[in-house]
Design a protein around this nucleic acid. Structure first.
Lengths: 202, 202
DNA sequence: TCAATATCGGATCGTTCAATCCATAATTAA
DNA sequence: TTAATTATGGATTGAACGATCCGATATTGA
């Protein structure tokens, strides 16, 4: 049943897509409501009626990102493939997505909310992206654990160490892409990380 | 010979230190001039007289950072030590510095200027930190090349790939530290990267 | 048919932003 | 001394900020 009141006329998906691209390109702080209004074609009233605040819009835009381009990292949570294969797809897939020229460079989740600002709104911005980063890390760690139990990795493998190595490289991809490092070099780097995985087999 | 005119009464080093800590903690965009005025104890006139603009102050603060805490990465440019040793000191030194609780977490250079903003000032902010990142990368690459020529690394080593792996991990340290990853896990991760280096020997 | 509800465009809110101006003070060069 | 130059504190600028208000409009449930 439709809710009472005048129905919304704008396309929510299109608005979130436009907002996502803007936040992705410029970051949360540097993106103004005036820009968001122009990009989405919405008035302040519509924007605030639908999302409550700039921070609320950012959260929804991040969710849209995670469901869209950011979904490339979902493969690492797939336990039906071997842990090495999952990590390989995670790294190579992330590189391909982040260097795709049809949208802004890098990863919105990796680049946002990495500094602490005093405003209350900042904490919320930080929380939503940090949560996704923590989830990715947890999935990587689960892969490493699976690798050890399956025998792909040595028994004495430092799980947290290998996890931090892979996750660190993953996070560093974004900055490198922003600085212009080529996809080819990054794919080779991912192979180097995976070679490390192989070298740790018993 | 002293320059003509009324001499400056404030401590330039102290002012840059205060500004550096603020930019480090909050990032360029989220740091306001009012905060910078309070932290440095200077008036707008003194600030603008000495640095010209917020962007100019940021550039000087970054130089102060590079000469101070950021100097830990200088070791990778030291050609008197073996390339593996240089990379080892780079990674472990960076982790120790970034997790030191006597100052903000992470690396100011790695966390700043990773997004493109439309304003003209943004380009300048981006330039100064991106230049340092490029320099670090070049030094890492030189180490990898030295490793190949010295025989530490195999002749068929993908130089750009290994460089991107090491640099990517280095850049990713900052985000991990901001998210609370422990120094211990990161040191173990650095060892994993270095183990990769060793495994690539011929 | 009508009250209640929710969205719309657009004007507008008070605040904060980076930056500038001004009168005064302190120094050097002539 | 005097003129030129630079730094100082403090008031102030116009613009941009995020957010809200308002009258008009469109829909639902009674």
């Amino acid at each position: 049943m439709s809710p009472a009141g005048r129905p919304r006329t704008f396309d929510m998906e299109a608005a979130l897509q436009a907002a996502m691209l803007l936040f992705w390109e410029q970051g949360y702080e540097a993106t103004s409501l005036a820009q968001l209004r122009e990009a989405t074609g919405l008035s302040s009233a519509s924007l605030y009626g639908a999302f409550g605040s700039k921070e609320g819009l950012f959260e929804k835009a991040v969710e849209h990102y995670i469901a869209g381009p950011g979904s490339v990292t979902d493969v690492v949570a797939d336990e039906t493939v071997s842990p090495r294969e999952a990590v390989a797809r995670l790294l190579h897939g992330s590189i391909s997505m982040q260097t795709d020229t049809s949208h802004p460079r890098g990863c919105l989740v990796a680049l946002s909310g990495t500094v602490r600002a005093p405003g209350a709104g900042e904490a919320g911005v930080r929380k939503v992206v940090a949560a996704r980063r923590a989830a990715d890390r947890a999935h990587i760690r689960a892969c490493v654990v699976r690798g050890v139990t399956s025998g792909e990795l040595a028994e004495d493998t430092d799980v947290n160490g290998v996890t931090s190595m892979i996750h660190g490289f993953l996070l560093g991809i974004s900055t490198q892409v922003c600085d212009g490092t080529s996809a080819g070099h990054l794919h080779a780097a991912a192979d180097a990380v995976l070679a490390n995985w192989d070298a740790r087999g018993r």
